[in-house]
Simulated scan of single mutants.
Amino acid sequence: MRSVEMFVGAGGLGIGVGLAGFEPVAVMDWDRWACDTLRENKANGLHPIMHWPIHEGDVRFFDFSGIEGDVDLVSGGPPCQPFSMGGRHRAFLDDRDMFPQAIRAVRELAPRAFIFENVKGLTRASFANYLEYIHLQLTYPELAILPEEEWLHHLTRLEDHHTHGAEDGLRYRVVKQVLNAADYGVPQRRERVLFVGFRADTGIRWHFPTQTHSRDALLWSQWRSGVYWDLHEVAQKDRPDGGKAKARAEKLIEKPTLAPWSTVRDAIRDLPDPELQPEAAASFHDHRFQPGARSYPGHTGSPLDEPAKTLKAGVHGVPGGENMLRRTDGTIRYFTIRESARLQTFPDDMVFHGSWTETMRQLGNAVPVDLARIVAVGVREKLEALV
Rank of each mutant, 00 (worst) to 15 (best):
L311S: 13
T331H: 08
E322T: 07
V315G: 13
R327T: 10
L325V: 05
K312P: 06
I332H: 01
L325I: 05
I332D: 00
P319Y: 07
G320K: 00
K312G: 05
T310Y: 12
D305K: 07
K312Y: 04
T310D: 15
P307F: 12
G320A: 07
R333L: 00
P319A: 11
D305F: 10
A308L: 12
G330D: 04
I332Y: 02
D305C: 10
P319R: 08
K309R: 15
A313S: 15
R326Y: 04
T310A: 15
T310R: 15
L304E: 01
G317L: 05
G320S: 09
E322R: 05
E306G: 14
P307S: 15
N323R: 06
A313M: 12
P319M: 11
T331P: 09
L304K: 02
P319G: 12
R326S: 05
P307C: 14
G314T: 01
A313G: 12
G330P: 07
G314C: 04
R327E: 07
H316F: 06
Y334N: 05
T310C: 12
Y334R: 03
G320W: 00
M324I: 03
A308W: 03
L304G: 02
P319D: 10
H316V: 04
H316E: 05
Y334K: 03
L325K: 03
L311E: 10
A313E: 09
G314A: 07
L304R: 02
T328C: 14
Y334L: 04
L325G: 04
M324D: 01
G330I: 02
P307A: 15
D329N: 13
E322C: 07
D329V: 04
T310E: 12
D305T: 10
R333E: 01
L311N: 14
R326E: 02
K309Q: 14
Y334C: 02
E306C: 12
V315Y: 08
V315K: 11
M324L: 12
A313I: 11
G330A: 13
V315C: 13
T331C: 08
K309C: 11
P307H: 14
A313D: 10
P319T: 08
G321F: 06
D305P: 13
R333W: 00
P307D: 13
R327V: 07
I332G: 03
T328E: 12
K312M: 10
V318Q: 03
E322K: 03
G330Q: 05
R333P: 01
T331Q: 12
G321T: 14
G320T: 01
R327M: 08
T310G: 14
D329K: 03
G317M: 06
E322D: 14
